[in-house]
Design a binder for these strands. Structure first.
Lengths: 332, 332
DNA sequence: CTGTTAGCGCATTCAG
DNA sequence: CTGAATGCGCTAACAG
């Protein structure tokens, strides 16, 4: 008969006529308790609806069974899937997840991470735009910590998609389709994955002297993509590589309004393979970032840290090129 | 100079040459401390990088500054926006958010809610499919709790969108466009919002004797929508009201593949107005559920409970009809 | 096998 | 105004 006021271990001990320790032992499955006694305690506990106060437990044990996830934007589909993968995996291991949405406030990421870390056993940090130096300085104080989508770090596990490989596949894809003058919607500056994308572009330019890439500034969302339409048209390209799927979809929509046919007149590719990418018209060619897997692996890494297993591993997954209808041969 | 091992209040007290209580008072802004002394304590605290252990604080104060959000599926865009609105609002008030994704396991919702409740100050419960009786039985033990997207409850605040109103607007919309034989992709059974949608449909049937509604079973996601295409075609209707935007988008995609033109041959409407709804081809007519606002209001309600202000209010928001390109006049 | 003691880190009486 | 106790609820030595 659970009442609103939770029973404490003291009450259980009292009504069962035993000491605190005995109750504690029984509740924690300590086998050094007389079977009959244990049974009686269990009955009383059940009757009173008792279960240990996790807070008190955390304080004495020094662990909370909770990890924090710091993400820049809960609205970003990529982080959503990472969060989901992580949440499920952690939950399967009996861990809870505290979320901290930094609302893109790069300046407050460190503070937030530190604050949430104090009430958890570790933090999974997604901070794509935090300067590398700041990150390196922050990590030690956060330990145990695993970093998502950043280059391998000194002494902290890292889980990341290789945005360079993904972008390389996309450039090669449009190059193979005959495109030679290609626009790149560059997204926001200062992001780690942005740098990786760009390096793939640079390599492509080296590998293919007849390739031209016109870089166009943009944001990271729909509206940015739509807003880039004029610049794209002015650039006189036959293909566009967007920073991500959102940007690509915005552009797709905006050029559609202008009567441009995709992919006949213009090829457009995104990045991420968010769930909606396959439902645009035409469906979006993109590089699939395995968010769910990244989330799971981030948890694996955290779990390993928590259990004192192998320390700083850095796992990298290659995005998979997904060719759909939004890219096609260069118009003749 | 913050080190990995956090300073405790005892250490601060010792190095400042004062008692625990004094440090505690200073850290909590208690003004009954000599200014000079307080300043010295603050300096030492800063030097040692001290700040109170939230766990210990929670244990003694009886509050965690954390609330739990229980949602059925982190992948569901509607809950995503609710979560986001809630998270931002709570964060602004200095509260943390623990997420519990029940992974659509209705049977475990109660357990999970109870478990997370114990380590937080309250829970925001999104459990669209939990039987009303179970819900009513569960709520008292969760208090303080606010319920999202369910009918008003006995003694717990409720924040909800009025799915009946939204659906009523959509039916009326297609009726006004001349459609008389309409399909309804019914989503999953047993959801509270599903019942609300259906009642709107019933009312429409009563109001318009010449209206026919063909109900077709479906799920709640893209694939369900796509999978319903054959059934929709067989139903020989001129308009379809989908359970939500995801279903509508799946259907849109599938009928597109079959050469059906939307809206010339078939009108399709969704529900929710998820961010992607405006970027389908054609853009989706839908009823906009204000997820962000619902999330914020859920937090307001929780905040009120936490501060002992007004108790069981139930706020309801009407979805807004958003007419885009996926619905049009009945084909002649 | 069981009970008594101490203490996790802190806020808060209560004396002085 | 400040310090010395008390206890939040629990687990983990430590005795018996």
């Amino acid at each position: 008969m659970a009442r609103s006021a939770r029973a404490t271990i003291t009450q259980v001990a009292r009504t069962a006529g035993v000491s605190l320790s005995t109750v504690s032992r029984v509740m924690n499955g300590n086998p050094t308790v007389d079977a009959a006694l244990a049974e009686r305690v269990r009955e009383v506990a059940a009757e009173l609806g008792y279960s240990a106060n996790p807070l008190a437990r955390s304080l004495v044990l020094g662990r909370t069974q909770t990890v924090a996830v710091v993400i820049p934007d809960l609205a970003n589909p990529t982080f959503q899937s990472i969060l989901r993968g992580l949440s499920r995996a952690a939950s399967d291991d009996g861990f809870h997840v505290l979320i901290a949405d930094t609302a893109e406030q790069v300046a407050e990421e460190a503070t937030l991470a530190t604050a949430t870390r104090r009430r958890t056993d570790g933090v999974i940090l997604c901070a794509p735009r935090m300067p590398a130096d700041d990150l390196a300085a922050l990590l030690p104080s956060l330990s145990p910590v695993v970093v998502v989508n950043r280059p391998p770090q000194e002494a902290t596990p890292t889980v990341a998609a290789d945005y360079r490989v993904g972008m390389a596949q996309l450039v090669q894809h449009v190059y193979d389709l005959g495109h030679r003058r290609v626009a790149y919607l560059a997204g926001v500056v200062g992001s780690a994955s942005g740098a990786a994308r760009r390096s793939a572009l640079d390599e492509a330019l080296t590998a293919h002297p007849d390739l031209e890439i016109i870089e166009i500034a943009s944001g990271v969302d729909f509206d940015s993509g739509a807003g880039s339409a004029d610049a794209v048209m002015a650039a006189d390209v036959t293909a566009v590589l967007a920073f991500n799927d959102l940007v690509a979809m915005g552009l797709l929509s905006a050029v559609g309004d202008r009567g441009i046919r995709v992919p006949e007149d213009l090829s457009i590719a995104g990045f991420d393979d968010i769930p909606f990418a396959r439902y645009t018209t035409p469906p979006l060619t993109t590089a699939a970032v395995p968010g769910l897997e990244l989330g799971q692996e981030a948890w694996q890494a955290m779990s390993a840290l928590l259990e004192g297993r192998d320390a700083a591993t850095s796992t990298v997954r290659d995005p998979a090129l997904v060719v759909r209808g939004s890219t096609g041969p260069r118009p003749s």
